[in-house]
Amino acid sequence: MIADDVAAEDVLQVAERFLGQLSRRRLMLDSTARKLVTEFSEVPPIPHVLTRLAHFLAEPASELSIPKLTSEIQKDPRLTSELIKVANSAQVASTSRQNDLKSVITLLGPRQAILMCLSIGMRTVRSQLMKPWADDFRDWYLKRSAMVAATAEAVAKHLEDVPSETAFLLGVLSDIGILVLAEHHGQKYFDRVIQRFRSIPTLQLVKSERIVTNTDHSMVTAAVLESWKFPFSIVQPIYAQHLDIDDSLPKMGAGLVRCLRLGEAFAEMCDQPAAQRVNAFNSLLSRYYDVSRQESRHVFLEAIEKANQTAEILRTPPLEMSELQQIVNQEGEPLAASAVDQEA
């Protein structure tokens, strides 16, 4: 029996977690990705506390207590210090400064606090793998990562019925495989994959990766997250992002995959607003036929604003706000007309 006062969202999350446990088998990662992560010594380990926090994020909100979360985070003094610093930054802070961990978690809320901790942890992983990168590639990756995460969150909040914090985290995590592939394949990956993808809008990043490396960054990311023992409910959407297996996914997992795909398509359109990228983005957006063009614009303008707001948390370079807003609002109509618009 389910008590009358239990929220429907919590029931759904428990069901999703149970189904995930039933299907907790090793994902069918391609052998190249699995071997790369298994044998590649440069993939940095992460503190155990981050793995624990990732599992907390996969739990129903009603099971997250502030004392329990405070106890877990304070095991890592450096993470505690960074979280308090970020919570008091201009992008996040309330009118009063918070100086202790429990107050910060209370202010942010447990799920948002977990999200910030994991984002802070990923900064360290990213900085280790990006040390030899040229500035232009580094800026491209950081802006892309921020935009994918912010857009996935906005889509989850306004267009899908899935947790927005989880969607944001998936966006932050989804491109870790790019870092690993670049570190392993070196200049060949930059020249034959990233540089060509950025200069030729008809190319698709994943297809180029598969030709050059025999795998792709989503597969590698999923392999990395498995090695870190992240929960299946977080690994699976990233694994499925570039596969045609939506029908086999649980409802929440499929929704998160759609958030990731739109986040990536929007980031790629903003990087290169060519017709091919615009069409790819609109193709994904057309699923939401009952959303007007004006509502769609609001979602993606919010994503741009959020990506810029999180620059301090993710340590990403500032975005060209006016240029990105122009892409969303331009007369060329990059956002597809929905059925609502067509009926007007």
Rank of each mutant, 00 (worst) to 15 (best):
F18Y: 15
L159Y: 00
I73K: 06
Q325P: 02
L243G: 03
R97A: 10
A149C: 05
W228K: 08
T32L: 10
N308D: 13
Q342V: 10
V291A: 12
L57C: 07
Q21H: 11
M147H: 02
K75H: 14
R25T: 06
E63P: 02
P334I: 05
L83D: 03
T213R: 07
L57K: 04
V299F: 10
L335D: 08
Q195H: 07
L57T: 04
K229M: 13
P60C: 12
V125E: 13
R126T: 11
D246V: 12
E16A: 15
K157W: 06
V11C: 13
D191G: 09
D30V: 12
S81E: 14
P317N: 02
D30N: 07
Q294C: 01
D247P: 00
A274V: 00
D135R: 13
R26C: 07
Q309F: 03
A87C: 04
A61V: 11
P77A: 12
V104M: 03
G255R: 05
L319F: 07
D216L: 00
S81K: 12
L83V: 05
T310N: 05
Q204A: 11
G171A: 01
Y189R: 11
E305D: 13
V235C: 02
S23V: 00
L83T: 00
G109I: 02
Q98G: 05
M1F: 09
R34L: 12
N88F: 02
I84N: 01
E268C: 04
K68P: 03
Y239N: 01
E63H: 09
A54M: 13
A222D: 07
L173C: 04
